[in-house]
């Protein structure tokens, strides 16, 4: 027994785990019969199918020759996903202007090529652009500064 494809092993395990989540979740819903399928019928069939495929992919990791998965770009991953999450968190309390500004500054940290001044200029420019296009031109009902900053 030698694992030849880490990629297949890992992705197979991920699929198995997701299948397990959907499978357990399907018990809460009536299955029904083949003629009158309940809301749980299709989910159950699909989770079993995904589990079978996941198991197959895990098994295939024993004989599929494969390269190691390429290293994760942790810096990019952390700052890009983190920035998006931060935007979601800050948007309501702070309003779009500070939330977006902070988000852009965080995204710039994903690249080694930024100096603080460039990042700042870019953030101001982008926030201004978004404000002009989406709020001034398209009239989206967005709040510039939220409740934490004296807005509404």
């Amino acid at each position: 027994m030698k694992i030849r494809s880490i990629k297949n092993l890992a992705s197979g395990i991920i699929f198995l785990a997701i299948a397990a989540v959907f499978w357990t979740g399907s018990f809460a819903m009536p299955i029904g019969t083949a003629a009158r399928m309940g809301p749980g019928y299709f989910p159950q069939v699909l989770s079993v199918l995904l589990a079978l495929l996941g198991a197959g992919i895990v098994a295939s990791s024993l004989y599929v020759e494969d390269s190691m998965p390429a290293a994760f770009h942790w810096r990019g991953l952390a700052f890009i996903i983190g920035a998006a999450v931060l935007f979601g968190v800050l948007l309501k309390p702070l309003g779009i202007v500070p939330a977006l500004g902070a988000t852009i500054l965080i995204t710039t940290m994903a690249s080694p090529n930024f100096r603080p001044a460039t990042a700042l200029v870019l953030a101001v420019g982008l926030v201004g652009f978004v404000w002009i296009v989406f709020v001034e031109a398209l009239h989206l009902p967005w709040v510039a500064f939220g409740p934490w900053l004296g807005g509404y």
Partner: peptide, 14 residues
């Protein structure tokens, strides 16, 4: 590219 991607992320969020 490093001047572009913050804009892409911005548009995704917005």
């Amino acid at each position: 590219y490093h001047l572009l991607y913050p804009a892409i992320v911005t548009f995704c969020c917005i």
